[in-house]
Design a protein around this nucleic acid. Structure first.
Lengths: 203, 203
DNA sequence: CCTTAACCGGACCGCCCGGTCAACTTGTTA
DNA sequence: TAACAAGTTGACCGGGCGGTCCGGTTAAGG
């Protein structure tokens, strides 16, 4: 997936793939305080090997997240051409919540300067979301007093809310996405009490 | 103001008060992974003294939280008698978000069996919220396909969402509370895709 | 004022974390 | 197949954590 195939030995490439898979699973299970040792054990490799491939735990996390962000950006781009912009935005938010299950935006908050590639991908994703939001607003599906930054911030709230129910039925987050999305619709809204945050302040 | 004044020496009482104040401040600043050593330093006492008053860091956290929960329950009780049930619920949610600024429900999630008094207080708070929600629904201010558990789960979402903006203007959470509350109102809603969680599953 | 028990504090313990390193193994290539 | 570079590994390090403990301190009561 990640195109760092610069003369990588066969076993090293295998280990790297296993490591990324294990890290993704472990971060999903235990959140972002999963230990590097556990990830290494899960991948069946030594801890030193982890740090050979990624100099820092944060870099490993960034690599895992990069794929998801790019994936999401691609989906957003596809949905830009959808016939119903309101439904497109909802579908995007649904996919976003579904894909990141556990991981919330906190990795994006931390990743200010950590990883240049991740920052770029994040910026592309945010740009696509902006298009989605503006189209939905132009179509009258979404209230006009919100910004794309608002949507980005609210994006992972459904997962977070549902995470407080330990034995949650699968897809409980859809319930809260529906409620929040209803709050984004323009039916009988009242003016918002606080101006939106600056777009650059999100990460 | 916890009434454990059972023959407590003067200096001990003073230290206990300072400790509680420092813990509240420190937990608010650094989140719930604030270290006991830092709290002790902030209170101007030794680390051993902390553990003399509270056998566990979790117990200290529970003591800090207990006041807020009782406080919130009292407010909810007061608002039960308000003329406009919809406005009362909104005011409650506003106060809840305002009071807990940083601390989210995670301490309530963890505190399953930790502290009996906290569990009782939490149950009382949840009961009051249920009354508030039902009254708002009876008045037609809130959609009828949501439950009090939904409201409890959504209660701290505004703070969490706003916390992703590092240099957030004061009260940014009000913006997201307004959006979410609009999603709770009965104007042109669509049916929710997932049944609500069991009330007992929250903590 | 003196005794005493309650209280205080910080050195200390065991644990786990992210990260390093030098000795060892293995894929590659000529 | 030989020889080397690339890769692997787990012991190890420094640091921070929650929690313990005992020698010194101090408020309280007669």
């Amino acid at each position: 997936m990640t195109s760092t195939d610069r003369h990588l030995r066969a076993d090293a490439a295998r280990n790297r793939a296993a490591l990324l898979a294990a890290a993704e699973a472990e971060f999903a299970d235990r959140g972002l305080e999963a230990s590097v040792a556990d990830i290494a054990r899960r991948a069946g490799i030594g801890k030193g090997t982890v740090f050979r491939h990624f100099p820092t735990k944060e870099d490993l996390l960034a690599a895992v997240v990069l794929d998801r962000v790019d994936d999401l950006a691609a989906l957003a781009r596809r949905l830009t051409a959808a016939a119903d912009p309101g439904a497109a935005l909802l579908e995007f938010l649904d996919a976003a919540a579904d894909r990141q299950q556990q991981l919330d935006l906190s990795f994006l908050r931390e990743s200010g300067e950590v990883n240049a590639r991740l920052s770029e991908s994040r910026a592309r994703l945010f740009a696509q979301i902006t298009v989605l939001v503006e189209r939905a607003q132009a179509a009258g599906a979404i209230r006009t007093d919100i910004t794309a930054t608002d949507v980005i911030l609210l994006m992972c709230a459904p997962n977070h809310v549902a995470s407080f129910v330990p034995a949650a039925p699968a897809g409980l987050w859809r319930r809260y996405l529906a409620i929040i999305f209803d709050g984004l619709r323009p039916h009988g809204v009242r003016p918002l009490p606080t101006p939106p945050p600056e777009p650059g302040q999100v990460g």
